[in-house]
Design a protein around this nucleic acid. Structure first.
Lengths: 198, 198
DNA sequence: ACTGTTTTAGTACCAGGTTCTAAAATGATT
DNA sequence: AATCATTTTAGAACCTGGTACTAAAACAGT
């Protein structure tokens, strides 16, 4: 029973866990290049660690995002999507915290409010590639720390199945509208003829 | 050229679209049972309709939800200010990194590019409180991972010592302009009469 | 040298497809 | 009825990213 030098395996397991956490879309073959062991070892490791194969991981993520209709944790920046009807409308909630405000004034930095609206607008578009082409935005009043921004987005038009979609977003704190924006989103399913877009 | 009774195909396409929308996890084989046609027909139909295979659909869903969960800080997204002449002009540099892009396309999320420009515009205003009131922005082309965005901002007008300032921001990657925005910034030293602002 | 673990190799097999070729069925036109 | 285009079906080869299994090799410790 070997007692010393048993570390490499454990270390590799840690490394493996980290790599897969960093990029759940990595294949075993790609992992061999990173970990410098054979693909069989990778697979033995995954077994020992109970990590499912790539396709199963993707399936789980897809199912997770699919049936967890509510409480989809978008991101702390972007807010939490609480309702999403693709190509129609969506709602996200974002609480302004310490790290989002100017420390002097405790007023939220504009780009966080924008980011919430922008992310929601993009998330709404049911397309492979959805990028913001342009936006016209108004910050109607300051948002302060601790306030909850509720952004409601509506798809207003939809040039065919490809092209541009117009999405209007209203952000409220309570009854008060604090932000309003008109986004033009590119919904270019695999095409190359962008004028621009993010 | 058959002219009548061409409906069945179109109808089947509609049915197919509906079935896949209802359950994106359905396999072609399962669809044959529902639509009573051969698996080849299902596949021809998917091709014509541009519907990817099950695994690709799952992958896209997984990436979609992953992207949402993943986008990070935005805190210090602002970029690095390398030149600043208060109330006149400024330059900041921001490199697009892994955490700023959609993983599928490696294209930067719009709000990061916006955040750089917004932060610079606000930083330019030599005032106690400077908040974005509104903005009109254009994303001129996609920015990809690894590219360095150089934002140049110019103060265009300056209503008195208080009130609104107009700031124009151009963001370049190399020689190419990738973003352009007109910001209206509140510069209200003694606050009070906000209409809005961030 | 003999054990036990760890790693590597190789084969067969699987789902859920794509790609291609080609035959059959269907329907409309003359 | 014979002809033509469209639509549907069939079949085989191939692909990715694996699983399952067997077995040999490489190490490590005693």
């Amino acid at each position: 029973m070997p007692l010393i030098e048993r570390l490499p395996k454990k270390q590799r397991h840690q490394h493996l866990l980290k790599l897969i956490e960093e990029n759940p879309f990595v294949t075993d073959r790609e992992l061999t290049r990173e970990l410098k062991v054979s693909i069989q070892t990778i697979r033995l490791d995954r077994m020992e660690l109970g990590i499912p194969e790539l396709r199963e991981r993707m399936k789980q993520m897809a199912e997770h995002s699919y049936d967890q209709v509510r409480s989809l944790p978008l991101d702390e920046v972007v807010g939490e999507v609480v309702d999403l009807q693709l190509d129609k409308s969506g709602i996200s909630i974002f609480e302004i915290r310490d790290e989002h405000v100017f420390s002097r004034t405790q007023i939220a930095r504009g780009h966080y409010v924008f980011a919430q609206a922008n992310s929601l607008a993009v998330a709404l578009i049911n397309d492979e590639i959805a990028l913001t082409a342009s936006a016209d935005i108004r910050f109607l009043r300051q948002v302060h720390m601790g306030e909850k921004c509720i952004a409601k987005a509506y798809v207003r038009s939809m040039n065919g199945h490809k092209g541009k979609a117009k999405v209007e977003v209203f952000t409220y704190v309570g009854e008060e509208m604090v932000f309003q924006g008109n986004f033009v989103i590119y919904r270019s399913t695999g095409e190359e003829n962008f004028e621009g877009g993010m």
